[in-house]
Design a protein around this nucleic acid. Sequence first.
DNA 1: CGTAGAATATGAGCGTGCTCATTATACAAT
DNA 2: ATTGTATAATGAGCACGCTCATATTCTACG
Lengths: 211, 211
Amino acid sequence: MRVTTETKAATRQRILEAAQSLFNRQGFDAATTRDIARAAQIAAGTLFNYFPTKESIAMCLVAEAHAQAVEHFQAGPAQDASEPLSLEEELFAHVAAGLRKLKPYRKYLTAVLDTSLSPLHSDQADGEPSLRVAHLEAVSQIVARHKRDAGPSTVALHLYWTLYTGVLVFWSKDASPRQEETLALLDQSLAMFVGWLSAPTNSTEPPERRG
Amino acid sequence: MRVTTETKAATRQRILEAAQSLFNRQGFDAATTRDIARAAQIAAGTLFNYFPTKESIAMCLVAEAHAQAVEHFQAGPAQDASEPLSLEEELFAHVAAGLRKLKPYRKYLTAVLDTSLSPLHSDQADGEPSLRVAHLEAVSQIVARHKRDAGPSTVALHLYWTLYTGVLVFWSKDASPRQEETLALLDQSLAMFVGWLSAPTNSTEPPERRG
DNA sequence: CGTAGAATATGAGCGTGCTCATTATACAAT
DNA sequence: ATTGTATAATGAGCACGCTCATATTCTACG
């Protein structure tokens, strides 16, 4: 049964590549599932044996790129550099690294943002951990390292995610030459978040329930 | 030609009422445009002579409710009360009033949030001003009254809108008894926003370009 | 080999939001 | 009344994402 398994993986990869190419060329909506199936050399229905929805294909592409970004970032600099970065600087570096990796998907990111990245979309139990969970975990670690306490509270993470998706939405339509307006917005968003975090009551989740 | 004009207005109203009823009973997705047309006693295609898309029907319902909220709020108290409210308190009162008016639409608000309320969706030139523009205008006035300067900057309004839609998304799924968790989140969001606004550089838009 | 059984591929078909050529209606001019 | 014209209503039909009964292929065992 090894042959078929390898075949399945190859087919899955062909679907992802076909989808990426078509999404980039014509956008998410204009690229039909029949188009993608034809480009991947499978029947229209077969596509849904590999992905439950059209949107899940895009989500998979984005999640893969994001996983790469996290990997690169954690192995990258700023870990024990000569002059340590501030919390705000480190968060900025983290998000900016993610944006660089997501750049090929920028144009059709909104298709995924609208639903899968919503803070209330259940993080599907199957498959790899969701992009949101992975991203928030990385942020939690960064904050905890700077605040020397338990991680940020649930509401803090919710506010962070709201601001982050706001940046992504803006980025997906940013027409400035090198998306510098997005970086400016990110700067302001993080300043807002870190400033609020430093307020006396909101810094961290209590390690254990009081009482 | 008066008769037909009145008929058209009546038909439009029947569509809105039918849609509201069906959206509430079965949700936005489950209520088909054919259902709505049948309930409004028109043919399936006729519905699209009155509204360009299914979503625009929901948007219209929400915008109407919001307009009522603004009207009630501006005629309400807190204008020149004995003890003046702080900026944060006034913004809280404004948003809370909006939530009260939007309560009947809470369950299917996400259908509208996903697209029409996005900060990058072009505010359609035809018809009434968009919900977003109307809301941000009210916020601008409140901020300007407190800051004694020009209104908040573009990026400030963008950040506000991001936080506001974050609250709406949370609210649409809030299962706590009286949606008190939403109010808590709103409280934190506004604290964050007002705190950032008070930072030296971000307070207001410069009245004129420097130089 | 042959064949049973599991895994996978297939494409006709469903219901959807939406379009558009056609039909029906309302009103003005004669 | 009759005709002409603008306007609105109609529903068959389109393309879409997605489903599912059927067909096909692969593997294991006698």
